[in-house]
Design a protein around this nucleic acid. Structure first.
Lengths: 206, 206
DNA sequence: AACGAGTAAGACCGGTCTGTCTCTACCTGG
DNA sequence: CCAGGTAGAGACAGACCGGTCTTACTCGTT
């Protein structure tokens, strides 16, 4: 999955090597893709809409991305950076003083997230269920979900909890379940999950 | 949602009123739809494939179902009957002696389900995420998910647990989260959820 | 025997999908 | 000044989508 993402030039490389005349086409495509894919899903957004909204020629699009799927891979990588890392993990770390508090703060961040009017569930789960676990994009989503679990496991290790991998897998069940419940309209789903998460922490002490 | 399902004649009505010469077209369509929709999702299966696989003329299809979406609604109703009620709830009730045991047995049934090679997650969740909560099919999925929660709530009441609706909502988070984890490949997801479910029961006693 | 309801088969319609290709304009480095 | 790479605009291909409609056939009923 990371190999496929490597075939897409990063924005930094583009900005360094491209002529400075006008804004980079790749950056505009990625920005529009992030906006549309994260809010409406991958299957609902076609290439024609992407190129129209980003003011890019179709040939330009396909020069930088050999297929729509490769753009989706780039989007998933961007989503991991901007959403998983910056919006969730970093924010939770900022809100909590201790690793245990930081873990529980994840569900406080979820609470704010659930209340957003443009809340649209987790792109990794969406794409995994939409494409299936056998599809390359489903596999990539599984990889990025594993990265989320890795962040939880790290926090569990910092908190000195027992069996941090098992802990992270159980914790992740609560995260994903609460996201689905929020999609159904339960705005207290984060609180319910947080309560069960506290019990989980309790049972992983010592 | 149920009003739309009512526009679809039930198999019983068809078998009673149709000529006895050949198998009913509606039944064949519904059987094929159940097979394809539950395994590959709604968007991935077109009307042409449905009519080809069920040996039905296109006009016949559209005489019985005014649109593809109405067939999906009929599929969701069938899924609630065959999967939610017959495969999960009834089986869990059969496996447990007390309401508490029956609740926990849900995750044993999930364990067997996760191991099936044609395991394909929960159609209600899939369609909800695929179409979004605003789409009629997403709304119908939300309704059927609420029915699942209702079964859990009934069991909680039979077990004499406190605040059965809150209990059912938390329990449902565990169910849905474990399904997503199983889709990712974690075959122990049911056991992890069952452990947390036991703690949830403990905290709802008294 | 004639009729009408239901059926299979499939052509057809307008639209959308991903992806390829052409054409022209621009900007830059040599 | 000019060649080459990049850009926008958009026609086009081939497949597929949901949905409509025509045609021919097979029934049970009258």
């Amino acid at each position: 999955m990371s190999s496929a993402a490597e075939s897409v030039p990063s924005p930094v490389q583009i900005q360094a090597g491209a002529p400075a005349g006008h804004a980079d086409a790749v950056d505009r495509i990625l920005a529009v893709a992030y906006e549309l894919f994260s809010h409406r899903g991958v299957r609902d957004v076609g290439v024609n809409e992407l190129i129209e909204r980003s003011g890019v020629a179709k040939a330009t699009f396909y020069r930088h991305f050999p297929s729509k799927d490769s753009l989706v891979l780039a989007f998933l990588e961007q989503r991991d950076r901007q959403w998983t890392v910056d919006a969730i993990v970093s924010e939770a770390r900022r809100r909590g003083a201790t690793p245990t508090e930081q873990l529980l703060a994840i569900f406080d961040v979820f609470g704010d997230w659930f209340l957003r009017e443009d809340f649209e569930a987790c792109s990794f789960i969406n794409i995994l269920l939409e494409m299936g676990p056998a599809h390359p994009l489903g596999q990539a989503s599984i990889d990025y979900l594993a990265r989320i679990r890795g962040h939880v496991q790290t926090l569990a290790e910092e908190a000195g909890l027992a069996r941090p991998e098992d802990f992270a897998r159980s914790w992740h069940i609560l995260m994903k379940g609460s996201i689905i419940s929020a999609t159904e309209g339960d705005m207290q789903a984060n609180k319910r999950a947080q309560q069960m998460a506290a019990w989980l922490i309790e049972h992983h002490r010592s």
